[in-house]
Computed example of a mutant assay.
Amino acid sequence: MKQLALGMIAYAVQRDVDAAQLCKHAGIDPEALKHKTCPPVTAQQLQDLWLNAGRLTNDPLFGLHFAESLRPAALGIVGEIIQSSATVGEALTHAAALTHLITDQCRMEVIRTHKTFTVQLIPHTDPGATPPYAFRQLIDLLLVMVIHELDGLVFEKIIPSAVRLAYAVPDVQEYERVFRCKPLKRAGEYSLVFDSRYWDEPLLTANHQLQGLLLQKVSSLAAQTGSQPATLQTRIYNYLLANSYLGVASLNDMAANFNLSPRSLQRKLREEGVKYQEIADAVRSSLALYYIASGNYPLKDISYMLGYNELSAFTRAFKRWTGSTPVTYQSL
């Protein structure tokens, strides 16, 4: 639970929460948490962390949005899965055995039929015995992590056939945006159902390596900022960069993850003298130069990785950013 706590604190900081204040409310020593020998995070501390993270960010769906941003932070676990898996089915089977690395509150089972396969979370105790808020945040977190990590492993937006939750969700529209289908209430069940066609989909191990490179790039940028509070545009830039192996997020998705309306996000950025599209273009430009310089990716693949369906559209954008075409830049 230590890694989960560290991830929650890091995401809360990205949402402009003071880490020391959050840890104080949860009864956690932030310095001790950084050391391997620190005492385990207790269930009560984790519960207090969930409650106060949601309160300080003013986001009742903190777990949902935290999971949406967790892809790079989960690389350690994904790395273990990659080493022992060749397909989505194998990855999920191995992931089920690694659930304990994230939580001791539940286990994961994968059930396969002819037409579908289901990823189901089984609580170790009666959910009623666990503080409801923390338990629901944890379920949201784990289920969204499954979807988004599969995205990264196959470089495709995987859409569940069904999402089943034992509780009524507070914001159906936002859950549907994140889960990509409308959640259904089903007593005693916490599960994702997928079409069987995904089961034998091969994993793209190179894409996992790309995630790692992007995470290193973001870490180096964070180190350069020192102890100064990051501006909103910097936090958005780093978020987009770290998660860009799945394409650059839209304004609406970014605003939702920061628990803001698109208009509010645009207004806050305007106060910093920048537009969202300018940040997104800066990320695309930086990545385009990075990918071309690496020599590992054909221009057509780079175009797709940056969210352009046509190479011609990427070429026009690249010329606008740099003054030259990708082919010309590649030959320099």
Rank of each mutant, 00 (worst) to 15 (best):
M1G: 10
Q3P: 05
L4I: 02
A10C: 03
D18E: 14
A19H: 11
Q21V: 02
L22N: 06
H25C: 06
H25M: 13
P30G: 12
P30L: 11
P30Y: 10
E31H: 11
K36S: 12
P39D: 12
P40D: 09
V41L: 10
T42W: 03
Q44W: 06
Q47R: 09
D48Y: 05
D48W: 06
L49H: 01
N52K: 11
G54F: 07
G54Y: 08
R55V: 09
N58I: 06
D59Y: 02
L61V: 01
L61K: 00
F62K: 01
F62A: 05
G63T: 00
H65N: 12
A67Y: 01
A67D: 05
R71D: 01
A73Q: 13
L75S: 07
G79F: 04
E80W: 04
I81F: 01
I82E: 04
S84G: 02
S84L: 08
T87L: 06
E90R: 13
T93F: 13
A96S: 15
A96I: 12
A97N: 14
L101M: 15
L101I: 09
C106K: 14
R107D: 07
R107K: 15
H114L: 10
T116V: 11
T118W: 03
V119Y: 09
L121I: 09
P123I: 02
P131T: 01
P132Q: 09
P132A: 06
Y133V: 03
Y133G: 01
F135V: 03
R136F: 02
R136I: 00
I139R: 00
I139N: 00
V146D: 02
H148K: 11
A162I: 02
A162K: 09
A162Y: 07
V163W: 12
V163I: 04
P170Y: 15
V172R: 15
Q173E: 15
R177K: 14
F179S: 09
K182E: 09
P183W: 10
P183M: 12
L184D: 05
L184E: 10
K185F: 02
A187D: 07
Y190G: 04
L192P: 02
V193P: 03
D195E: 04
S196C: 00
Y198W: 11
Y198G: 01
Y198F: 04
L210N: 08
G212E: 13
L213N: 08
L214K: 12
S219A: 15
S220L: 14
T225M: 14
G226A: 10
P229V: 12
P229W: 10
A230Q: 13
R235C: 03
N243R: 10
S244N: 07
Y245N: 13
L246N: 15
L251H: 05
N252S: 14
D253R: 14
N257E: 10
F258S: 00
N259Y: 04
P262W: 02
P262R: 05
S264K: 07
Q266W: 02
Q266E: 05
Q266V: 01
Q266Y: 03
K268E: 01
L269G: 04
L269Y: 07
G273C: 05
Q277K: 06
E278I: 14
E278P: 03
I279A: 05
R284L: 01
S285V: 00
S286D: 13
L289Y: 04
Y291D: 00
I292T: 02
N296C: 06
P298Q: 03
S303Y: 14
M305N: 12
N309Y: 08
L311P: 11
S312E: 13
F314D: 09
T315G: 11
R316N: 13
A317Y: 14
W321D: 08
S324G: 04
V327W: 11
